[in-house]
Design a protein around this nucleic acid. Structure first.
Length: 270
DNA sequence: CTCCTATCCTGCGAGC
DNA sequence: TGCTCGCAGGATAGGA
């Protein structure tokens, strides 16, 4: 489900919920594994710790304490919510309990998510090889262009490669390429510097706009606070096969690229 | 190395 | 209506 905007919106929701820096009373793992086995022994060491901040790196959420952090990745279907006593649902896999009956629940039907501990952010294997944050200045047209020079894959595939830039998934890759009027199947190394500048500008604009709209609520995505997002109403190509392009009379088309459905306008995107 | 494919898992909607 | 099939926001192991 979640690409950078959705993860950032969830992070902000959790930050608000945990604003008073509560102490973790109890962590319950309702099963041993999500995508991977969870390090139960290490996770339970966080009981008694205070969550001092909720941070994000790429599509990962970090519940930070003075002794390290709990790392959460939402996979395709992961959600965090406040679950009062009695509010248990199928596919709830983790409960984190605090004082005053506050309890966070992690629910993830497909279990593609990750829950792990991080002591050294520079060393953790999931964080080690990540590319730049798209909303930071280090991610520029020039930097993207440089990192694509040797890439002989389709531009959309490269844009979704977390070593090139983090946080951009299947929806925002299609949307950004449409906005920049570049065809998804263009070989990445063939992208001109000028087009790279344009693409970076559109990636940043779209991600910012989506965060502002609360992310995209397709299927059952919701913020940690339970509200839904509205950016799905701004999709111009994603999941719009057969509908008219916003710029021309052409119908939006789709095809598989790197195993992922890819949406584009063959007239606008060159 | 780089690139591509299959795979993990459940739910849901399309089509018969 | 009820069934089967294919596909869904991600990431990675393993083969070419």
């Amino acid at each position: 489900m979640p690409e950078l905007p959705e993860v950032e919106v969830v992070r902000r929701g959790l930050e608000k919920i945990l604003a008073e820096k509560p102490k973790i009373q109890k962590i319950e793992l309702l099963r041993p594994d999500l995508r991977d086995e969870m390090p139960a022994r290490e996770i339970h060491k966080f009981e008694g710790q205070v969550i001092s901040s909720v941070e994000r790196r790429a599509k990962y959420i970090l519940f930070c304490t003075s002794r390290g952090a709990l790392l959460s990745h939402l996979g395709m279907t992961g959600t965090w919510r406040v679950a009062a006593k009695g509010d248990e649902r199928p596919h709830d896999h983790i409960y984190i309990s605090f004082a005053k009956g506050l309890r966070l629940a992690y629910r993830d039907p497909r279990r593609f998510g990750i829950f792990d501990v991080v002591y050294d952010r520079e060393q953790h294997k999931r964080l080690l090889h990540l590319g730049p944050e798209p909303l930071e200045e280090a991610f520029s047209g020039a930097s993207l262009w440089r990192s694509l020079r040797q890439k002989e894959v389709a531009l959309k595939v490269a844009l979704m490669d977390q070593k090139i830039v983090v946080g951009v998934g299947n929806i925002y890759a299609s949307e950004a390429l449409f906005a920049a009027q570049i065809k998804p199947q263009l070989i990445a190394s063939k992208l001109s510097l000028a087009k790279a500048e344009r693409l970076v500008q559109e990636v940043k604009r779209i991600l910012h706009l989506s965060i502002e709209k609360g992310g995209s609520s397709i299927s059952d995505f919701a913020q940690a606070t339970g509200e839904s997002g509205y950016f799905q109403n701004n999709f111009l190509v994603y999941d719009r096969v057969g509908q008219k392009c916003a710029n021309c009379q052409q119908r939006i088309r789709s095809f598989m690229l790197g195993g992922r459905n890819t949406f584009w306008c063959s007239k606008c995107q060159k």
